Amino acid sequence: MINLPTPRQLRYLTALAESRHFGRAALACNVTQSTLSAGIQELESLLGAALVDRTRRKTVLTPLGQAMAAKAADLLRQAEEMVLLARTQSEPLAGPLHLGVIPTVSPFLLPRVLPALRRKLPKLKLYLREDLTERLVEQLQAGKLDLLLLALPIEAAAVQTWPLFPDAFRFACRKEHPLAGRGKVALPALAQESLLLLEDGHCLRDHALDACHLPRPAKPESLAATSLHTLVQMVDNGLGVTLLPDLALDAGILRGTNVVTRPLVEPAAKNPPSRTIGLAWRAGTQRASEFKLFGEALLAAMSKQKIQKTEG
């Protein structure tokens, strides 16, 4: 019978792979450096191969060590999912959930729905991480996040997505802008305008350009914003026009400004240009049904918030 590595040894290896330093890895595992070093040596003896290159001043994993660390992370993640799956059979959405959210969604949606979610799911411990799509997907694939709330579509290996709702784009400009006098703004009119966008790396930028069938700039713009709030201030200062999602508008992002919005229309399309907000999780996870329950709870909280807003 083959002797197998212990979860403790696997945890030591993954911590060392992440930190590239014995001291920091030991701290992350809450053990002494000598204990962690001994655990790595035990694992190397068990496998009959070197996992760490100890001939250099820096801690460097051998190619085999890197491959073993990746497999160790997968095994630990699967073991954790076994425990969570057993727990959710008796009580779904109870316990920790690490959720990553993009910055063009998080500040505009979460403050409005989290109170209702906490009331509906009192045993859910929600840990939030806000970041750009690319980095969130990397953390999801690495097992550092359980679930993502972001704009679809995304291109990512071994990731499953589930759409929740459309988020329409609207044309935004100052009150005195010529297009502000129109009831609707046709997409061809945007070609003649100084269109301000979020800087490269924000998925909203690409989704807005794709939804409105606009070409990507041949070179980086001299004026690009780091957030939707900055984008609104640039428009308010007369630097150009922009496209804003309904989520941000419903949250009051234009409050206190001279910026107005108008619906966007495309003659050949039935629906206005929009992005799709949805969830993403690792393909093959045993928690997919639980994540869908979270999505349904999120939609219910949004619906309740809109009803309260209308009645108020």
Rank of each mutant, 00 (worst) to 15 (best):
A288Y: 14
N3V: 09
E266D: 09
A151V: 12
E42I: 09
L150K: 04
V232R: 04
L97K: 05
T276H: 04
A297M: 05
L187A: 05
E91Y: 11
K292I: 13
L190R: 09
L136A: 04
G65M: 00
S19F: 08
T257C: 13
Q89I: 05
L64A: 10
A49Q: 15
L279A: 03
D74T: 06
T161G: 10
L140W: 05
S19T: 14
L214H: 12
R24W: 06
P115A: 09
L149G: 02
G256I: 01
L13A: 01
G65H: 01
I154W: 13
Q286L: 15
T242A: 10
R24E: 08
E266P: 02
T35A: 15
L231I: 00
A73K: 13
R77Y: 03
P263M: 03
E266W: 06
K270F: 11
P111K: 12
T55M: 01
K219T: 13
E80Q: 03
R262C: 11
D53W: 03
D250P: 05
L187N: 06
R77A: 08
S45R: 15
Q33K: 06
L132C: 08
G39M: 13
E138S: 11
L47E: 02
Q139S: 07
K123T: 09
D146P: 12
F294G: 04
Q141H: 13
R56G: 14
D200S: 15
P92K: 00
R287V: 01
L209Y: 07
L187I: 04
P267R: 14
R182N: 08
E155F: 13
L223V: 15
P96F: 03
D246L: 14
A211G: 07
R54D: 06
P5H: 02
L128A: 11
R118A: 06
A69W: 01
L214F: 08
V31Y: 01
T285N: 07
E42T: 12
S222F: 09
L61V: 02
T133D: 09
S194M: 12
P245S: 12
A156G: 02
A79W: 05
A280Q: 03
E266A: 13
A79T: 09
R20Y: 03
P215H: 14
F171C: 06
L279P: 02
L152M: 10
L4S: 07
R24V: 13
V52K: 00
S289L: 09
T161W: 06
T285Q: 07
E134Y: 08
A67F: 14
P7G: 10
P103K: 07
Q286K: 07
T35R: 15
G201Y: 04
P92C: 01
P107S: 04
R8H: 14
H21K: 15
L197Y: 10
R170A: 05
L239A: 12
T226E: 14
L190G: 11
R255I: 10
A70Q: 14
K71P: 04
L254E: 07
L264I: 10
G143F: 04
G143E: 10
P107Y: 06
K120T: 02
F169A: 01
A208S: 12
A300G: 13
R170F: 11
A180L: 00
G23H: 11
Q308M: 13
A211M: 02
L264V: 05
A269E: 11
P215D: 05
